[in-house]
Amino acid sequence: MLEILQEILQVGFFAAVIRIATPLILATLGEMFTERGGVLNLGIEGIMLLAAMSGFTAAYFSGSLWLGILAAMLAGALMGLLMGVLTVSLGLSQHVSGIGTTLLSTGLAFFLYRLIFGQPSLPPNIEAFKTVALPVLSGIPLLGPVLFDQFALVYIALLLVPASALLLYHTPWGLNLRAVGENPRAADAAGVSVTGLRYQGLVLSGMLMGVGGAFLSMAQFNAFTFGVISGRGWVCIALVVFGQWSPWKCFGGALLFAFVDALQLRLQASGVIDLPYQLFLMMPFVLTIVLMALVSRSARPPAALLKPFRKEER
């Protein structure tokens, strides 16, 4: 067993961990932002799927990958807006609105993909993102190939972690967002627009989830498949709880999940453990539940999470 692990835990493995973590980092940060403002976005799973489809399709027809990313962000932002109308303006149940958004986005992704591409025997594909080795940095032994010979989106995701922490804790916008999520009544009295900030949080979350989804269909793989997200969005919801609504801890959670996911993939491929491969696929999900059970007792979600805010009600 030790030898297998020694064989697995190589530079290439850790590079894979970072790659697998990237969509999770993006979507988890997105979910963290909206929850910090007091709105749970359960649309995440569907939004990632719709964005994966939109990004792929835009890139397929325009030939520009970055235009694809833009389309994915747009799709995410639109669904964020929809969530805003339902949960912020109308004050509907965040749980059911989110499930509705996921069902709608999933349906739309399937419907539009079939409409645009039909049922070809070979799924259409694109020239996906290529890794960009950063000069000098990628030459650092061990760390270089793991961190600095990656897709551009990986760098963006990694930079977004400190940027999110900065935005959340050291800007007036971040302070207002947190105030809106903790005590909307007081924030409102102080002249902060609860509605505006919650919408902004949702749109931002949609865009980040969108990039996360597009990473899967445009960098990790070069085609869109119906199962491309397969539960990753739901995992991100759990990672936000595990990460205690803090950007750095969420990042840690995403890395931990990605580590286990990469490990199960390698163990599957090595064939040393003779178990059906589905049991390996199950591992990260089991781990997520165990992690949730460990931290949930002490977790302190934003106080106004799930609570609609109506100005006129006291």
């Binding site: 539960g231 759990a238 709880v241």
Partner: peptide
């Protein structure tokens, strides 16, 4: 106190 939405989904 684990959130039921997440666990039932997973």
């Amino acid at each position: 106190k684990v959130d039921d939405v997440v666990t039932t989904l997973l």
